[in-house]
């Protein structure tokens, strides 16, 4: 290859990626730097930013300590993630195992299980807002028999985690229900992975007299562990970033009593309702740091339980 064509090829490399390169500068590098700098300023969009040092970070630390504002949003987000992520993982795997059963109509079952995941999040929020209406909702119409005061769902602040009898459900539990209904994407990923497991592994285990549970516990689960890990990380990121459904079920306020005020909504409201761009930028950076920390921690523990091709890493 001549030097000229080589240079041309090298140049064309940069040329081909130039749209993304422009995007990198405009949509990432500039915002990245600006938001970091603004997090040390008072900025309301109308007047230019005014340096205030680490005031916003101090305020965030205080709010975490007192459980107001960001602190409240953090607790809500952690609750939502801690309940919805493990439940989604268990549900997605169980459904995938069932969809792998050789029964008549397998393809139809796969479609039916997946279909709710195609429902736009705005539509499913509207739908569940109605289904979980404390007075007229179908869900309370069914479980209402067991309650003197039926669950308040999106209007309630009592959460299932308090384990009252009878079990109460609040706004975050409603959001968990919604996320479980739309578990289809990961279900499909698990389904494909289960299909990839060598049948000989199961045959060998059967010869050793392994039962259904033992095969699941010692073959299926370890073989799925890289995907469980991927699901865990992505699930945490997604639940921290959950915005649309939170906005709609709380009518853009985080009500009732801030029970559904998640970090994404709190940040959005600080920025675009209260015009506190500096504080909101600081919240974004704290969130970024916390997410990074959580991901790093999970990667560290992953060595103990994630198996790649059957080898523990």
């Amino acid at each position: 290859m001549s030097a000229v064509t080589q240079r041309r090829r090298r140049l064309s490399g940069w040329l081909f990626v130039s749209p993304w390169l422009l995007g990198l500068i405009v949509l990432f590098v500039y915002p990245f730097i600006a938001s970091f700098l603004w997090s040390f300023t008072e900025y309301d969009l109308l007047t230019s930013p005014r340096y205030v040092g680490a005031d916003h970070y101090q305020r965030i630390a205080q709010e975490i300590a007192s459980g107001e504002g960001f602190g409240k949003a953090l607790v809500n987000t952690v609750y939502f993630a801690a309940v919805s992520v493990p439940m989604s993982i268990i549900m997605a795997i169980s459904l995938a195992v069932m969809l792998n059963w050789k029964v008549r109509g397998q393809a139809i079952f796969r479609t039916l299980f997946y279909l709710p995941s195609m429902v736009p999040i705005v539509a499913s929020s509207i739908l569940w807002l109605w289904l979980l209406d404390p007075r007229d909702g179908m869900v309370n119409g069914v479980i209402g028999f067991f309650y003197e005061v039926p669950p308040l769902w999106f209007q309630g602040i009592q959460e299932a985690i308090s384990l009252d009898t009878p079990l109460q459900f609040g706004s975050k539990d409603g959001l968990v229900m919604m996320s479980l209904w739309g578990v289809g994407n990961f279900m499909l990923i698990y389904l494909a992975a289960i299909g990839d497991i060598e049948p000989s592994l199961y045959h060998a285990a059967e010869l050793d007299g392994a039962g259904v549970w033992q095969k699941f516990r010692h073959i299926t689960l370890p073989m799925l562990s890289p995907i469980i890990f991927f699901n865990l990380i992505l699930g945490i990121i997604q639940s921290v970033q959950a915005f649309t459904q939170v906005y709609i079920v709380s009518e853009g306020t985080g009500q009732p009593a801030e029970a559904s005020l998640m970090i994404s909504l709190q940040l959005f409201l600080s920025a675009f309702r209260d015009l506190e761009m500096g504080y909101a930028s600081a919240v974004a950076w704290v969130l970024f740091a916390l997410l990074g920390l959580a991901t790093w921690g999970l990667f560290r523990t992953s060595k103990n339980w994630v198996h790649y091709r059957g080898v523990r890493m």
């Binding site: 990432f28 500039y30 938001s35 974004a284």
Partner: peptide
């Protein structure tokens, strides 16, 4: 860039 949450870039993008 995939690992960066949208929260960080949202406000400057909006201003820009």
């Amino acid at each position: 860039t995939m690992l960066l949450p949208w929260h960080v870039t949202m406000i400057p993008r909006f201003v820009l």
